[in-house]
């Protein structure tokens, strides 16, 4: 089993960051404060989720697991839209995020639990929550990048898109190249992850399982599963988000409606 860490152990590691803060202060860098706040915030967030997971694991109730999953999904769809340079304004933007993540990350997690991992019961929170978290985190990044690419390119290439419409192209035809680019942009981190796995980086979950005493080959098998699930979720999520996002940019008369994007964020 894993060596348990005491509060003193963590204080020792915190001492390293404190030392960094002191050195930065000497050099007149204005980073000490952000360093302190960032570290404290991280500790608070992780402790909080630790207690939440503790309570959740104790209940083993489907209702609470679903509630937690829903919270994660809502937070992820908010984050994915809020970080956009030019987000799709209004509730439509958030619902595109929610829909494309719910339809992929959530259903792929359910698929993995029901047919692949098969814990008993299938919603065992020790499996369900971390699995959803990992898939959701990656899907969120992918969908965010894809939508960001889509909306920014649509705004900067407005005259070209309208030029295509004027030659009698449908909205789908006028957007096809741009949509492909957006889907590709969303998949780049996943493709990098696949290429780097085990060669450049030891994936976090595998490392964690090995630290916890699991045989490396078992850990590797789990990691392969996760990466395949992440790739599928990110890919399908990007496709869905770009499809719905591009549709939102046009009205029923196939007119490009850029006023549906919020003003650019600095």
């Amino acid at each position: 089993m894993i060596e348990s860490l005491s509060a003193l152990d963590l204080l020792l590691a915190g001492g390293l960051v404190a030392a960094l803060g002191v050195v930065q202060f000497w050099h007149g860098l204005q980073l000490t404060r952000s360093l302190l706040m960032g570290s404290l915030r991280m500790v608070a967030q992780l402790l909080l989720i630790g207690y939440v997971l503790n309570a959740l694991f104790a209940t083993e109730s489907l209702g609470w697991v679903l509630l937690m999953a829903l919270m994660m999904l809502l937070l992820a769809s908010y984050e994915v839209i809020a970080r956009q340079k030019r987000r799709i304004a209004g509730w439509q933007g958030y619902s595109i995020g929610l829909l494309s993540m719910g339809a992929t990350a959530a259903s792929i997690t359910a698929f993995a639990l029901l047919f692949v991992v098969q814990p008993a019961p299938w919603f065992t929170p020790q499996y369900a929550i971390p699995l959803l978290g990992m898939i959701l985190g990656n899907t969120m990044t992918g969908i965010g990048l894809a939508l960001n690419h889509l909306t920014q390119m649509a705004a900067s290439q407005r005259t070209a898109i309208e030029g295509r419409l004027l030659l009698g192209q449908t909205a789908d035809q006028a957007m096809s190249g741009l949509k492909q680019d957006a889907v590709r942009a969303g998949l780049i981190p996943t493709l990098n992850m696949l290429a780097a796995a085990g060669v450049i980086s030891l994936p976090g979950m595998m490392t964690g399982q090995i630290l916890a005493g699991a045989p490396p080959l078992d850990a590797v098998r789990y990691q392969i599963l996760i990466m395949l699930l992440i790739t599928a979720a990110t890919g399908f999520g990007g496709l869905l988000a770009v499809h719905f996002g591009a549709r939102r940019l046009f009205d029923g008369r196939e007119r490009l409606r850029l006023e549906r994007l919020a003003p650019p964020k600095r």
């Binding site: 419409l165 004027l166 030659l167 009698g168 192209q169 449908t170 909205a171 035809q173 008369r253 196939e254 007119r255």
Partner: peptide, 8 residues
């Protein structure tokens, strides 16, 4: 009229 046809 379908929009693409109109614009063509």
């Amino acid at each position: 009229t379908p929009p693409a046809e109109w614009r063509r």
